[in-house]
């Protein structure tokens, strides 16, 4: 990512959380951290930073913000928590309806009106947290008109030369009638289905690793307990055996507490968690020639790396209002 983009991202974050900054030298900034944000910056009141590695090399007291820096990672994680949705309009020519099962056939379309039909692009981040942490990015394109959800790994880059943020006033935006909540749930379900095999594999590995370590820890602590109990049995020969017994009982209790604590730590360490975050969503408005009622559209060809899922039966392709 270019330095200027990182700069924009960081300054955008600072503006959002109310951190004022000044440029104190060429390529060097100073920021005052308000109290509410100091915990995020590890308690520091002032932040002196640069985006330039060469400057940071010479001036090690500066915080370097660049790809690979811890602070940048934290900032991106914070920004993602701010929900964002955008809408873009394609400036391509309106799409024609599909020709059905008779390619090459001459059809006459009448009564069609050009309009924007809407697709929703959901961007997800999937974090798989166990003993390691991996993250994957996914895009799910929900096309209500075609009742399809296309899932692919990675984020869908939008070609901004073919999209704009301003609608053509001549084209109305047609409501698909499709329930957005349902679309979102279906996108999530599609995502889960694609992750299932991998997650099961990881779960099995995590369970095995946990069991292995648990056995060792339990065996060790049980043996320690037995050794203490043996000592307790022999304590009757000791002059102050009451006192000794109490001491050993205390040690046994401490051992049991330790056992509980260690097992909890192990569980926490090996617990597999999959966190799905919806980073943001983009509504894509595609100019289309509308169909008269009754005519249906056929399926489009899919990209090789997508997993299309039909939302309903082919008989229900026509958009209808949500109930």
């Amino acid at each position: 990512m270019e330095t200027s983009k990182i700069q924009t991202l960081v300054f955008s974050f600072m503006d959002k959380v109310g951190i004022s900054r000044t440029q104190s030298d060429a390529g060097v900034w100073s920021a005052y951290i308000p109290e509410a944000e100091r915990a995020f910056f590890n308690g520091y009141e002032f932040l002196h930073f640069t985006f330039d590695r060469e400057i940071a090399e010479r001036r090690r007291e500066l915080e370097l913000i660049c790809p690979g820096s811890f602070l940048l990672r934290k900032i991106v994680d914070r920004l993602v928590e701010i929900p964002k949705v955008s809408r873009l309009f394609s400036n391509a020519a309106p799409e024609l309806p599909a020709t059905g099962n008779h390619p090459g056939e001459l059809r006459v379309l009448s009564g069609c009106k050009a309009h924007y039909r809407q697709q929703v692009l959901f961007h997800f981040r999937v974090s798989i947290i166990g003993d390691q942490r991996t993250e994957q990015l996914f895009s799910a394109l929900a096309d209500p008109a075609k009742h399809e959800i296309s899932l692919k790994e990675g984020l869908t880059g939008i070609d901004l030369t073919t999209f704009t943020e301003t609608a053509d006033p001549a084209l109305p935006i047609q409501e698909s009638g499709e329930d957005l909540v349902r679309l979102y749930l279906q996108a999530c379900r599609t995502l889960e289905a694609s992750l299932e095999d991998r997650v099961r594999e990881l779960q099995t590995e995590a369970d095995e690793a946990f069991r292995e370590e648990l056995e060792k820890v339990q065996a060790y602590l049980e043996d320690q307990k037995k050794e203490l109990q043996k000592k307790r049995e022999n304590v009757c020969f000791h002059l102050y055996f009451f006192q000794k017994e109490e001491e050993i009982d205390k040690m046994v209790r401490e051992l049991e507490n330790e056992q509980t604590r260690k097992i909890e730590e192990l569980k926490e360490k090996h617990a597999l968690k999959i966190q799905v975050s919806l980073i943001n969503a983009v509504v894509l408005c595609i100019p289309t020639l509308g169909l008269p009622t009754g005519q249906t559209a056929t399926r489009r060809k899919r990209d090789s790396n997508v997993f299309p899922i039909h939302l309903g039966s082919p008989d229900r392709l026509e958009a209808r209002p949500a109930v």
């Binding site: 949705v85 990015l137 984020l155």
Partner: peptide
């Protein structure tokens, strides 16, 4: 409640950068 795509796109770039 739409935001400018510049903001949305920037965060996506940040996410891609963080992903290993």
């Amino acid at each position: 409640d739409f935001s400018p795509y510049a903001e949305t796109g920037l965060i996506l770039q940040g996410e891609e950068m963080n992903a290993r």
